[in-house]
């Protein structure tokens, strides 16, 4: 029994049907961790991208260094760091929060590059037109550059959404009960790993296919020339 659901070991099919609700509980955790991690990656990534393209070297350099550091260290190391080191300094977060945060931080290094490339792809002619019209730097960024960068950014961000989803099982090492961890616990208790793990594979396939399709739909409906604000 797990989460109040009993399993039925009479045959593999019954077993699979009986543990599906349990795995769906784990899948819901996986989805939440993905969404939260992705959100952190999007916000923190934008922040890093803006810092990296700052004109002052004293801002741009540290931001680049941080990005490089994040990208070149394993997710697991960052996760352990947040989970075991932060509490020593009085910052105690639930395992789920810590895990989602670690995912977000890791992927912010990648998303910041996506933003940067998207922003740089908006031509100099656009910035010059904005300058000739006396638009402020802030207005140029938010109303001219970002709206044109969005359609270029969406497909790459979609790929990272799927990647984050597939990295969620790493959180099991800090006790987060995401889908794979749940499947492993079922296996430990029933000595049948094949059925739960196969189900996890199938459910993952469904999730990633749905996510990819969603991104593709978004991509086709976004106007290629960009999306003005307001």
């Amino acid at each position: 029994m797990l989460f109040g659901f009993e399993w039925d070991l009479t045959n593999p099919l019954n077993f699979a049907i009986s543990i599906l609700p349990i795995l769906l509980v784990g899948m819901w955790v996986t989805i939440q961790a993905t969404v939260l991690g992705f959100f952190v990656a999007l916000v923190l990534g934008l922040f890093l991208a803006v810092l990296k393209s700052a004109r002052s070297r004293f801002i741009a350099w540290p931001a680049r260094l941080v990005t490089e550091f994040i990208r070149d260290t394993p997710l697991l190391v960052q996760l352990f760091f947040l989970y075991y080191v932060l509490p020593e300094y009085g910052i105690v977060l639930p395992a789920f929060m810590t895990g989602a945060l670690a995912l977000g931080i890791q992927y912010s290094a990648y998303t910041s590059e996506v933003y940067r490339a998207g922003i740089e792809a908006v031509g100099r002619d656009q910035r010059e037109a904005a300058r000739a019209l006396n638009l402020s730097a802030a207005n140029t960024f938010t109303h001219i550059v970002v709206p044109q960068a969005v359609p270029r950014i969406v497909p790459a961000m979609g790929n990272y959404l799927v990647s984050i989803m597939k990295d969620v099982p790493v959180l099991s090492v800090v006790t987060v009960l995401e889908m794979l961890n749940v499947a492993k616990i079922i296996g430990d208790r029933t000595f049948d790993y094949l059925v739960p793990l196969s189900l996890v594979g199938c459910l993952y396939l469904v999730m990633t296919l749905v996510a990819s399709a969603g991104v593709r739909v978004l991509d086709t409906y976004l106007p290629k020339q960009g999306l003005p604000l307001k």
Binding site: D125, N134, H143, P147, P223
Partner: peptide
Amino acid sequence: VFQQFNLFPHMTVMRNITEAPVKV
């Protein structure tokens, strides 16, 4: 007035013209 026009492709003609007068 630029050789390559440099209009804002994501804005309507109207918005291209009103953007700066409103914001600036």
